[in-house]
């Protein structure tokens, strides 16, 4: 009897020890059509959890700034966010950009009955935007510059990305720029029409603007290179799934994020959000983006975003 009890106790202890050895990895996400949700719904993350004995947990943020704060504090180890916050984090935090996961994703919108037909018509108008740290801001500046306007020629109002559509439809502002799904939500419901989409303003990766990025803390990448690789692999697989079977992807997003199906359908069909298996954050693209951010005063002259293309390249080759 004694030895049996002893065996049981030691078995439990070992079991507890084994359970504690499981590492929790926090991933910052936003309520948008990000590929990382597909990775979760399709079971790709479960495979990684089993293989490497880790436990992924999603932490949701409404926009990039608090997400970056969490990353800085170490509360999350990996993050999926707009390219604006992604580049800023890679430049100013001990973090590295690993992938560009969504292209475009941005549009400048006006009301359907508005007499604003071109960007030049935005002169002296009020525009709602999600702040200087967003990926929408440099795009807006470039669009204005192409039309011969500067920031001082318009009246910008900083607000939450999710509020832009509301402010536009209630008439509080004349125009708005924000990210998907808020863009598609406004466009699909007919509350707004697109004045111009991001691909036509600032194509820096092929014909597209950069929308969403995936990045992680440097210390995490160094400690868990295989897990990092596995996650990037999963992102490529997710992009493939979205391209091959959009209906399933839409179902998954609707379930995971709660965005209405018709909005996501609109987004994909109209090319508001563009997905690709080439998620490499190549230097040329990043340099172009960095330059714009520095010109717009978002990054300081000495800021250099840290990128690691190795994971994405390996994932693309493998897929």
């Amino acid at each position: 009897m004694n030895s049996f009890k002893l065996a049981l106790a030691s078995l439990l202890a070992v079991g507890a020890g084994v359970a504690q050895a499981q590492e929790v990895i926090n991933i910052g996400v936003q309520p948008a059509t990000q590929p990382i949700y597909i990775a979760k719904a399709a079971g790709f993350l479960d495979e990684i959890e089993a293989e490497y004995n880790v436990d992924f947990e999603f932490q949701s943020f409404s926009y990039g700034a608090p997400e970056n704060q969490a990353l800085a504090a170490g509360a999350i180890q990996m993050a999926s966010a707009g390219m604006g916050p992604a580049i800023v984090a890679s430049a100013r935090l001990p973090a590295k950009l690993l992938a560009i996961t969504i292209l475009d994703q941005t549009a400048i919108m006006v009301r359907p009955d508005s007499d604003i037909a071109t960007v030049a018509d935005l002169k002296d108008k009020t525009i709602a935007y999600p702040g200087r740290g967003s990926q929408q801001y440099p795009l807006l500046i470039k669009a204005l510059a192409d039309a011969g306007l500067t920031e001082d020629d318009v009246r910008l109002f900083k607000t939450k990305g999710s509020e832009v559509g509301n402010l536009l439809s209630t008439g509080s502002v004349d125009a708005g720029v924000t990210w998907d799904p808020h863009v598609s939500s406004a466009l699909a419901s007919g509350a707004a029409k697109a004045l111009v989409t991001s691909g036509s303003i600032l194509p820096i990766k092929g014909d597209h603007y950069v929308g969403n990025g995936f990045y992680a803390r440097t210390d995490f990448i160094e400690e868990y290179p295989e897990v990092t690789q596995a996650v990037v692999d999963a992102l490529v697989r997710s992009a493939q799934l979205i391209l091959d079977d959009p209906e399933t992807a839409i179902d998954m997003w609707a379930a995971e994020v709660g965005v209405p199906r018709d909005v996501i359908e609109f987004s994909i069909k109209e090319g508001i959000s563009v997905y690709t298996t080439d998620i490499t954050p190549d230097q040329e693209t990043i340099d172009a983006y960095t330059k714009f951010l520095k010109d717009a005063g978002i990054l300081e002259a000495e800021d250099t975003p840290k990128i690691d293309t190795s994971f994405a390249e390996k994932a693309s080759n493998a897929g």
């Binding site: 970056n68 916050p85 800023v88 702040g131 200087r132 740290g133 967003s134 990054l299």
Partner: peptide, 12 residues
């Protein structure tokens, strides 16, 4: 207040 919120967004 805006200056502070804005600064935080770009991690300044």
């Amino acid at each position: 207040g805006y200056l502070i919120a804005d600064g935080m967004e770009i991690l300044r």
